[in-house]
């Protein structure tokens, strides 16, 4: 019988991360990672002055 381990939140990182691991007989059978927050910077920057991109994309991750 497979056992599912969910780690949420994963701390000491930037952002929101969930890790799910399926373990069967002491071995990892399958695993999933999900970033659970989106802002849509790429879509927002479409049509903007290209010089805005350096300022805005530096706010992807502040760590």
């Amino acid at each position: 019988m497979a056992k599912k381990i969910t780690i949420h939140p994963v701390t000491r990182i930037e952002g929101h991360l969930t890790i799910e691991v399926e373990v069967e007989n002491g071995k990892v059978k399958d695993a999933w990672s999900s970033g659970t927050m989106a802002r849509g910077f790429e879509a927002m920057l479409t049509g903007k002055d290209p010089r805005d991109a350096s300022y805005v994309t530096s706010r992807f991750c502040g760590v």
Binding site: I7, P9, V10, T11, R12, V63
Partner: peptide
């Protein structure tokens, strides 16, 4: 505080 806390997962929650 998700970025500085030592605990993760259920313990953090």
């Amino acid at each position: 505080h998700m970025t500085v806390m030592a605990a993760a997962g259920e313990v953090a929650e």
